[in-house]
Nucleic acid binder design. Structure first.
Length: 615
RNA sequence: GCAUUCGUAGCUCAACUGGAUAGAGCACCUCACUACGGAUGAGGAGGUUUGGGGUUCGAAUCCCUACGAGUGCACCA
C-alpha cells in the first residue's frame, strides 16, 4: 500500500476513535488529504472543518485529538500541528523509506499494471486525427493527434484495452474539388500529369496544392459572374467549376470507372503522405475507417428509429427527431430525398465501431466546434436504447491560435505539420550546439539527427499537451521549441542527467535498484527535505495517472512529470550523491534517482514523448 | 437573438475538483557550491482571479447578473 493510502487509513481510524458510534465515521476513501502548504510545517494536511457538525467539536479541538491519536498510534506520524481547521502532519522518515521501497519493489513507480482479465472487459476505442484527403495535416491536427495518442496510452495504463481508430474523410464535394483541379491544371508542359515524384512533393502536399488552385480559380469565376451582374450567392452556386465538381461527385457515387480511378490514385498519394507524417511523429492506428465505405450506413438506423416511434417523418419524407426534452432541438436525420446527412453516417458508424470491437467505451477526439453534433448523436443513441450510449464521450478541444490570429487555410496562415516537425528538430540541433558541449561527440550523424528529432518532438508535444484540452490555446512558435523552463526538453534533460549518474554508479560497481535499509531511518541520519519531497511526489504518480484516465487529461500527467523533474533538480542541487561520504545515503539516493528516472520515462511515455540517455 | 465554452501576474499556463497568504514558466533584476551534466538551482519584483451580487466556517472553483472573447445554431461534412 502506498504512503497516502496508509496514512488515510490511519486518519480514518483516528476519526473513528472520536465517534461514539464508529460506524458513522467516514470511510477511508472519503478522507481527503492535501499536500501541506510550503509556509507550514508538515507533509500532508487534513482539513477538519467537515467534522465539526457531526462531532459537535471545534475544528482546532478535532485537529488536536486526531494529531495526538496519530502520534500515539501510527508509526508513520512523527509530529503534527494544528492551524485553525488544518491538521498538518509530519511523517516519520521510516514512512518515506517504506514508501520508496514499495516503489522499488513494484519494479517501477507504481502505475498500476493492467490486470489481464479486467483489461479484456474494459475495451475502449479512441478515434482521432480524422483527416480530410484534400490537404496535408496542420498544427490543429497535431493537437488532435497528440491528444488522441496520449489519451490512448493513458487509458491503456489504466487497464483498458485500447483501439486507436482513424476515420478518414475521403469522399465528398471537397475531395472532388481537388480532383477536378488536378484534372484541369495538373498537366505539365511535357504532356504528362504531375505526380509527387515529378513535383518533388509529398502526396498530401501535392493534392493540397490543387485544392488551393481550385479555390483560386473558383473565386475568379465567381468574381467574373458577379461583375457580369449576378448576385453573389447565385454566382457561388452557378460557377462552372462548382457545377463540374458536383457533377464529378455524382459520377463518383455512380461508380464511374474513370472518376473512381482518379480518386484512388490521388488518395493513395495522400495516404502515403499522411503515413510519412505519422511515422515522423510516432503515431499509429489499430484501425482505419474510410468514409467512402461507411457513408451509406445509418439509413437502417433511421428506419429502426421510425419503427420505434423515436423519429418522425415530415410530409416531404424527411426524417427528424425531437430532442427538446434533452434541451436540444429538432434535428434532421435523413433528407427528404432519402440521402444521408452527416449525422446519419455517424449513427451507422457508431454502431459499426461498437460491433467491430465490442467496446464498452468510445471516445471521439474532435474539435469543440462539433460539441452540439455530439450531444445530439449521443442523445439519439440513448433514445434508441443502445447499451453503449453511456460509454460515449466527446473529447472536445479548443482551437489553436497563432500570435497573428486564427489559422485560416484560405489565407495561407496554417502551420504545416511536416514543416513544423522539421523546424523543431532544427531548433533542437541549435540548442544542442549551444549547450551539449562534448556530450554527443561519440554520436554518429544519424544518431544525432534522431536525438534532435526526439527533443524537438518532445518540445512540441509537451507544449501542446500541457494545456487543458478544453481551452483554446495560443501557439507561440518561439515558446513551442524552447528547451528551458516548463518544457519537454527540460524534463528530458533531467532524465539524461540521472542516467549519467546511473552509468557512473554502475561503473563504480554500485547497484542502483536495491531497497533502502530501513534501519538508516534514524534521528541522527535524517532525510533531507528535498528527498522527502521527491519521495512524496513519486508516490503520487499512480494517482496522477488514474486521474488523467478518469478525466481524459494528459495535461495532468504533463504537470506531474514537470513537478517531479523540478523537485529532483532541487534535490540534485541540495545534496551530493556519488561524493556523499555516507554509503547508506549514497545508496538511498541512487535508488531514489533510479525510480525518478523511470517515472519520468513512464510519464513522458504516456504523453508519447521519448526521453534520451544523453543530450 | 438562442445555445455553449472560456476570462487567473506584462505574456503563456497551473491550482489535486469548495480549503490556509492563488502557484509555475517566459521576460526583467540579484545571487550560487571551481559545474557528481550550468539545457541548473536560490531569491526579488509582479494579482481586488473581468466587474457586481449571492450560497457557507471558507469561493478562482458553485448559483445569479453584466461585460468581453471563441464556437455552434445548413436538407455542408
Amino acid at each position: 500500500m502506498d504512503l497516502q493510502a496508509s496514512l488515510k487509513t490511519a486518519i480514518q481510524q483516528a476519526i473513528q476513535s472520536l465517534y461514539t458510534d464508529p460506524s458513522a465515521a467516514p470511510e477511508p476513501g472519503e478522507v481527503l488529504l492535501q499536500p501541506t502548504k510550503k509556509e507550514f510545517e508538515g507533509t500532508y494536511t487534513y482539513v477538519t472543518f467537515p467534522l465539526t457538525k457531526p462531532l459537535r467539536l471545534s475544528p482546532v479541538e478535532i485537529g488536536q485529538r486526531l494529531g495526538n491519536w496519530l502520534v500515539a498510534n501510527s508509526p508513520l506520524v512523527r509530529a503534527f500541528n494544528v492551524v485553525q481547521g488544518f491538521l498538518n502532519i509530519s511523517l516519520a522518515d521510516i514512512a518515506y523509506i517504506q514508501s520508496l521501497n514499495a516503489l522499488i519493489a513494484d519494479g517501477v513507480a507504481g502505475a498500476q499494471q493492467p490486470d489481464t482479465e479486467a483489461t479484456q472487459a474494459n475495451r475502449v476505442m479512441v478515434e482521432f486525427s480524422s483527416p480530410n484527403t484534400n490537404k496535408p495535416l496542420h498544427l490543429g491536427h497535431l493537437r488532435n493527434i497528440f491528444l488522441g495518442d496520449s489519451v490512448s496510452r493513458i487509458l491503456a495504463a489504466n487497464g483498458y484495452t485500447v483501439t486507436k481508430a482513424c476515420l478518414v474523410n475521403d469522399r465528398g464535394i471537397h475531395i472532388c474539388k481537388s480532383m477536378l483541379a488536378y484534372q484541369k491544371f495538373g498537366r505539365q508542359p511535357n504532356g504528362t500529369f504531375e505526380t509527387p515524384e515529378s513535383a518533388g512533393l509529398k502526396g498530401d502536399h501535392l493534392i493540397g496544392k490543387y485544392y488551393v488552385l481550385f479555390d483560386k480559380a473558383y473565386k475568379a469565376e465567381v468574381a467574373e459572374l458577379v461583375a457580369g451582374g449576378m448576385a453573389e450567392d447565385e454566382a457561388a452556386k452557378k460557377a462552372p467549376l462548382m457545377l463540374q465538381a458536383q457533377e464529378m461527385l455524382l459520377k463518383w457515387e455512380q461508380g464511374d470507372a474513370e472518376t473512381v480511378a482518379l480518386w484512388e490514385q490521388l488518395n493513395a498519394w495522400v495516404y502515403a503522405g499522411f503515413a510519412e507524417t505519422y511515422r515522423k511523429t510516432g503515431i499509429s492506428f489499430d484501425k482505419t475507417y474510410y468514409e467512402s465505405q461507411t457513408y451509406l450506413l445509418g439509413k437502417d438506423v433511421v428506419e429502426e428509429g421510425l419503427v420505434k416511434g423515436i423519429f418522425y417523418q415530415k410530409e416531404d419524407k424527411s426524417v427528424w427527431i425531437d430532442l427538446t426534452a434533452e434541451g436540444l432541438d429538432h434535428k434532421l436525420v435523413l433528407r427528404g430525398d432519402g440521402t444521408s446527412v452527416y449525422i446519419t453516417q455517424d449513427l451507422g458508424t457508431t454502431d459499426l465501431k461498437f460491433s467491430d470491437f465490442h467496446s464498452n467505451k468510445s471516445l471521439w477526439v474532435v474539435g469543440n466546434e462539433q460539441d452540439y453534433h455530439f450531444k445530439v448523436l449521443f442523445a439519439i443513441m440513448k433514445r434508441l436504447g443502445r447499451p453503449y450510449a453511456e460509454g460515449c464521450y466527446h473529447l472536445s478541444y479548443g482551437m489553436v491560435d497563432l500570435p497573428s490570429g486564427k489559422m485560416k487555410s484560405r489565407e495561407g496562415t496554417v502551420v504545416d505539420a511536416d514543416d513544423l516537425v522539421d523546424e523543431v528538430a532544427a531548433v533542437a540541433a541549435q540548442a544542442a550546439a549551444d549547450a551539449a558541449k562534448g556530450k554527443l561527440d561519440e554520436f554518429s550523424e544519424a544518431e544525432k539527427q534522431d536525438l534532435f528529432r526526439l527533443i524537438g518532438l518532445g518540445a512540441l508535444k509537451y507544449y501542446l499537451l500541457k494545456v487543458d484540452p478544453q481551452k483554446r490555446m495560443l501557439f507561440n512558435p518561439a515558446e513551442s521549441v524552447d528547451v528551458h523552463g516548463h518544457t519537454g526538453p527540460f524534463i528530458q534533460y533531467v532524465h539524461a542527467r540521472i542516467r549519467s549518474i546511473m552509468r557512473k554508479a554502475e561503473e563504480a560497481g554500485l547497484s542502483t535498484s536495491v531497497p533502502a535499509d530501513e534501519a538508516t531511518a534514524t534521528a541522527d541520519r535524517p532525510l533531507h527535505e528535498t528527498e522527502q519531497e521527491v519521495i512524496v511526489l513519486l508516490g503520487q504518480f499512480a494517482q496522477s495517472v488514474a486521474n488523467a484516465g478518469r478525466d481524459y487529461a494528459p495535461s495532468y500527467v504533463a504537470q506531474y512529470v514537470y513537478d517531479l523533474a523540478k523537485a529532483y533538480n532541487r534535490l540534485f542541487a541540495d545534496v551530493s550523491i556519488l561524493s556523499e561520504p555516507d554509503a547508506a545515503k549514497t545508496q538511498l539516493r541512487l535508488s531514489l534517482s533510479a525510480v525518478v528516472a523511470e517515472t519520468i520515462r513512464k510519464g513522458m511515455g504516456l504523453l508519447g514523448i521519448e526521453v534520451p540517455e544523453k543530450m
